[in-house]
Structures are given as structure tokens and as C-alpha cells.
């Protein structure tokens, strides 16, 4: 009887004070709080991994893979494409201008601020987008956003930011927050016949084996892009990897430069804020 009375009293108190638990969906978007929770989770899950080392993905959490990677990096497999990217970046367009003319600081050491939100267009702009926009502005055709010259140019630009810390901003603009939330929702939503979300692998199974691979933690996941993947045999962009990941869980992928992938990149890169840029990188 006492328990019943206590329960009734508690319910009455809740009703009077309106202190019912808030649903998970309630509340304004709070990227800063998300960032802290996200990074704290991985710091706690992998206490022996130094914060900056998360940019090395699976090599940060598995000694065997790290040893192999260190051997591979004696002669990085992306070196030739990186050199090609530098050449392409420095080659002038038909109108005499170059990529450097489209970016602050001539495009050197700026990759850590991408993606960013463009208040004029209301869109998230990735580095790949900015490179293509530069080409269009100067009368050149757009490049394939997955691989080839685009990945090479992006790799060179990213390499000039090597060691600089990611500093992606999410302005207090409803459109920017909506893009960030869309990326966050995509990251945590299960899709495809295998019923996997990005988080299923890179949060809940981070550091575990998936056949012969070690799954990279979500923290630092995008810090090494563009990457040379052994599975590709060449260098590719983050959009290319998103397409591949979705196909692997048997979901129909979006276009590599689709809005939803831009939003996902916005969310994930923001989660890497404070980590050093390490791209281009190499992965199995």
C-alpha cells in the first residue's frame, strides 16, 4: 500500500511540476554538446590512444595493422597522384587564372576549414565543391568528384594543411543547423538490407574486426581524406567512400556530390574539430 501511495504521489508531483522526461527528439540543435559527447566517447573507449592518433583510423587501434602501415608509408602509394595534383593545381586555366586565385591564401593551408556553410547560397560547401566552382567560374568543365584529377588536386590542397587542426564552424543559422542535423541523422540511421548505420560500424563496432579489416573509429574518420585505398588501387574522395559504404550495406547510394553526403561530411568533419589534418592518407 505504501508503494502505491508513493507512486501516486510521485506521479502527482510530476504532473504539478511538469517535470516529465523530455523526449529524445526535443531540444534545440547543439553541435558543441554533440562534439564533446562524441569525442569523450572515443577517448573513454580507447584510453590508450592519444587524441591526435585517431586521425590514423584502424592503425591507431591495432598494433599489427599499424606495423604494416608504417612499412607502407616508407613509400606512400599516393605519392605519384599527389605530385600530379600539385601540377594540376599550379597549371593555369585557359583564361590565365589558376586555382589559387579562387581561394584565400592562394588555396594553401586552408583545407582544415572545409566543409563550410555558405550563407549566400544556404548550402554546405566541401573542398571538392569549391574546386569545381573555381573551374566553372574560370570557364572550365567540372571534374568527376570521386577520383582522378579532382581527388589529386584535393589531395594536394589537403597536404598543404597537414598538421593544422580542423576548424569547421556551424554558424547559428537555421539552414546550417538543419544541414548539420541532417548529416547527424544520416550517420545514425540504419539503412540498406543489412540494416546498418554508419554508427553501427564506426561507433558500436569501432576497433573490432570485420573479416580481415579493423573498423576505424568514427573520431578521425574523415581526417585523412582523400585516401589511397588498396581496394581502389588509386586515390579517391570522401564522396566516393560514402557511395561505397552505402553499397556495402546494400543500400542504393546517392550521388557522391549529393546534398545528403555534403551534410554527412559537414557533421563528421565537425566531429573531428581539434584533430590535425593528416590527408592524404592510405587505407586497406
Amino acid at each position: 500500500m505504501r508503494r502505491v501511495i508513493a507512486a501516486v504521489a510521485a506521479l502527482a508531483m510530476l504532473a504539478l511540476t511538469g517535470a516529465a522526461p523530455a523526449p529524445a527528439t526535443a531540444g534545440k540543435s547543439n553541435p558543441a554538446a554533440d562534439l564533446k559527447a562524441f569525442q569523450d566517447y572515443f577517448k573513454t573507449s580507447f584510453p590508450k590512444v592519444p587524441f591526435d592518433d585517431f586521425v590514423n583510423g584502424p592503425y591507431a587501434v591495432n598494433k599489427g595493422m599499424r606495423a604494416q602501415w608504417e612499412q607502407i608509408m616508407q613509400f606512400p602509394p599516393y605519392d605519384f597522384e599527389l605530385a600530379d595534383g600539385k601540377k594540376l593545381f599550379e597549371t593555369k586555366f585557359a583564361n590565365g587564372k589558376s586555382y589559387g586565385d579562387c581561394f584565400p591564401d592562394k588555396g594553401i593551408g586552408i583545407a582544415q576549414t572545409y566543409p563550410h556553410f555558405d550563407a549566400k547560397t544556404g548550402q554546405v560547401v566541401t573542398l571538392v565543391d569549391a574546386i569545381n566552382a573555381c573551374r566553372v567560374t574560370n570557364g572550365e568543365a567540372k571534374l568527376d568528384v570521386s577520383k582522378g584529377p579532382m581527388a589529386e588536386i584535393a589531395a594536394y590542397m589537403v597536404s598543404t594543411s597537414h598538421g593544422k587542426r580542423f576548424d569547421v564552424t556551424i554558424p547559428d543559422d537555421p539552414r546550417a543547423l538543419a544541414a548539420y542535423e541532417a548529416g547527424k541523422q544520416f550517420f545514425y540511421s540504419r539503412r540498406g538490407q543489412l540494416n546498418f548505420s554508419c554508427a553501427s560500424c564506426h561507433v558500436q563496432s569501432a576497433g573490432k574486426r570485420l573479416r580481415g579489416d579493423i573498423i576505424a573509429p568514427a573520431l578521425g574518420l574523415v581526417a585523412a581524406f582523400p585516401i589511397y585505398r588498396d581496394a581502389w588501387g588509386n586515390i579517391g574522395t570522401l564522396g566516393r567512400r560514402f557511395v561505397e559504404c552505402n553499397a556495402q550495406v546494400r543500400a542504393v547510394a546517392f550521388k557522391p556530390d549529393s546534398t545528403i553526403y555534403h551534410d554527412l561530411e559537414y557533421f563528421l568533419t565537425y566531429m573531428d574539430n581539434g584533430l590535425p589534418v593528416t590527408g592524404p592518407g592510405t587505407r586497406p
Partner: peptide, 19 residues
């Protein structure tokens, strides 16, 4: 099944968010 998954994930994804 894919429609059912999408409808379910409209709310279910919240439970996976790191907090």
C-alpha cells in the same frame, strides 16, 4: 521492408546518438 525501415528510423536513430 525498406519502407518500414525508413519509417522506423525516423525516430529510432535518436536512440543511437552519443550523449
Amino acid at each position: 521492408l525498406s519502407i518500414a525501415q525508413a519509417q522506423s528510423e525516423q525516430t529510432a536513430w535518436h536512440s543511437a546518438v552519443l550523449r
